[in-house]
Every structure is written in C-alpha cells, then in structure tokens.
C-alpha cells in the first residue's frame, strides 16, 4: 500500500462536501486549500533547494557546505530566512518606486502561478488545464518583464545591464526550449500535463528514451532560462556585482531569491513531467517519485554549474541561434515523422 497524498485529500474533500455548505463555498474552500498547499509545498521546496544547492556546491569543491545549524546545516536556510525577514527594507532615493516595488512581486507570482498545473502525483494536481504546458511557458515569461522592471527602476548601471542581459538571454532560449517541448506534444497529441504523464506509464515509454535529443536541448535551454551557470551572465558577479537585484534588500531580495529557486524547481519539474515519466515509478508513493526525479534534475543543473565556465554574451547567443535552434527544429521534424 503506497502512501498516496491524493487519497488523504479525497477524504478531506468528502468531509467538507458532507457538511451541507453551499456549493460555491465548498468550491472556494477547496480552491483556497489547494492554493495554500501548493504555497506551503513551494516554500518547503525552496528551503530544501537552497540547502541542497549549498551542500552540493560545497562537496563539488571538496568543502562541506553549511554544517553548524542543525544536522549538516539543514536549519541554515531557515536561519537565513529569519535574518532576511528582519532586515530593513531599503529603497534607494533615485529609484522608480512603483516599478521597484512591484518587480519582485511579479517575479515571484509568475513563478509560483506556474505551479498550478504541475502533476505532483497520482490524482494530485491543483488543476488540469488542457493547455497546461502552454500556460506554464506563457506565465513564466512574466519573469522577464519583472527582471527588466527591476533593472530599469533601480537606476543603477549594473542592475540595468543585468536586466537587459537576462531579458535577451531568456527570450532567446525560450525558442529552443519551446521547440524541444513540441516534440513531446507531437507524440502525446495533448498540451495537458496530466495527459503527457499518462502517456509515459512504462519506463520504455518515457520521452527521455523516445526524444533524447529533445531532452538534452530542453535541459540546456532550461539551464539558460533559470540564469544558471554556465549561462549566468545576467548575474555575473565579476562584471555586474549581482545583476538586476543589486539594489534590493530584505524581503524584496528574498522574493527574487525565492523566485529563482522556484524557477529552478519548475524547469526541473517540467522536465520530469515531459521526459522522465512524471510521477510514475515502482514501490514509492507517486508524489515522492516526482520530487525525487525533480531534485535529481536540480542536481544535474547544479552539476553543470560547477563544471562549466561562464559563456561570453556573443557565444551565448551564437550557441542558442546557430546551434540549439537548428537542432531543435531537426528534433521536431524527426518527432513529426516518428509519431505520425
């Protein structure tokens, strides 16, 4: 008997509908409950990912990473969060206040909104949009706008350069990213995330085996999409100090920080859903399989970070438009013939 979260949720849902409340209230409660659960899950994931990244980064460099707060430093993120929460919220004099205020909100909200149609496990998803994957790519594009807003409103040359760079990079890499996903969509004939997971029940049906090239392109483009090394020129410390978020402090900075990790998890989760069979797996509960696979993809992205040096801006663009894009088209054409 696997411990499925969905069966537990079903019991709660049945209990709420048996209370005799009006239908609209039951719907509202269920919607808010789902949103709160996804929010809680997102925060837990952020907490874990920050620790996971720091530990992995440490061990990749033969260091230990955080060790002092809690067992192997697992409380470190919580301590950092409390510290950031207490910080004074500094707004520099010359910034464009409204834009400066809303940029981190939009950044976090757009990353978080994409979590709405992730299939977390068997019968466990907030909503099953029939345009799920399109929705995810559409809503995460708002991140670009927020980065540009942050860069522009900060009234700081480093922030502006960082914002422009990341906008250029994300918009460029969105193209091969979407094209690599199209191969999967051609095969499943559906944009729904749940239907895509449903098409990969057996291991040999996983799209990583049917679309290995598509998976590689997706992984590379996703690394660039999340501004991670070797594609981290938007926040290249040596050139831009910190990139678009240089003027931010306190909770506003924390929101950018959390959005970055949400994005990291999101691209990993989408990779799992599209290529690694989603929540399918033996023995363990489905939601655990989903998380394990997603954290593995995160591990691979961090692995890239500590292996490859940063690309130059022109190399970055050349790699995207002259190499990845033709490959993505090739992949799509092959997929079109294969899955006719």
């Amino acid at each position: 008997m696997r411990l499925e979260l969905s069966s537990l949720l079903k019991v709660i849902g049945d209990w709420i509908s048996s209370l005799g409340l009006p239908v609209w209230l039951v719907d509202l409660i269920e919607m808010c409950g789902a949103a709160a659960m996804v929010m809680g899950m997102a925060f837990l994931i952020i907490l874990f990912l920050v620790w996971w990244e720091r530990k992995l980064s440490g061990h990749f460099q033969q260091r230990l990473g955080p060790m002092r707060t809690g067992w192997h430093g697992w409380l470190q993120t919580i301590a950092d969060g409390i510290k950031l929460f207490q910080k004074e919220d500094i707004i520099p004099k010359t910034v464009d206040r409204k834009v400066f205020y809303w940029a981190p909100v939009i950044c976090f909200a757009s990353s978080f909104a994409a979590f709405a149609c992730l299939p977390w496990g068997k019968n466990l998803w907030p909503t099953d949009l029939n345009i799920g994957i399109l929705y995810i790519f559409a809503i995460t594009t708002f991140v670009v706008i927020s980065l540009l807003m942050a860069g522009w409103s900060s009234n700081n040359k480093y922030a502006l350069l960082g914002g422009m760079r990341s906008a250029a990079q994300i918009v460029s890499y969105e193209v091969p990213l979407t094209l690599s996903v199209l191969g999967v969509i051609v095969a499943t004939q559906s944009l729904s995330m749940v239907a895509i997971v449903g098409a990969q029940e057996k291991v040999y049906n996983w799209f990583i085996f049917r679309q290995p090239l598509g998976f590689l392109i997706y992984l590379i483009a996703a690394t660039a999409e999340t501004n991670r090394a070797p594609f981290d020129i938007p926040e290249a410390e040596q050139e831009l100090v910190a990139g678009f978020n240089i003027e931010y402090s306190g909770m506003k900075f924390a929101m950018f920080f959390m959005a970055e990790f949400l994005n990291l998890f999101l691209v990993s989760a989408v990779a799992v859903t599209l290529f690694l069979g989603g929540w399918h797996g033996p023995f363990l509960p489905s939601w655990l399989w989903f998380l394990l696979k997603a954290f593995f993809i995160v591990f691979v992205i961090i692995w890239f970070k500590w292996t490859y040096p940063r690309l130059r801006v022109d190399q970055l663009m050349e790699f995207c438009w002259k190499f990845l894009l033709p490959l993505a088209f090739l992949n799509l054409i092959v997929a079109g013939f294969l899955f006719r």
Partner: peptide
C-alpha cells in the same frame, strides 16, 4: 570534453572534503 568535465566534478563530489571544522 564536456563529458570529461562532468566526470571530473563528479569525482570531486564524492571525494573526501578537506575542510577542517
């Protein structure tokens, strides 16, 4: 070469940390 690089960092990941606490 990219794969060789990945292999090198993976070896470092599993080798003993030199940190002295």
């Amino acid at each position: 070469n990219l794969l060789i690089g990945l292999w090198v960092t993976l070896r470092h990941l599993f080798s003993h940390a030199v940190t002295l606490q």
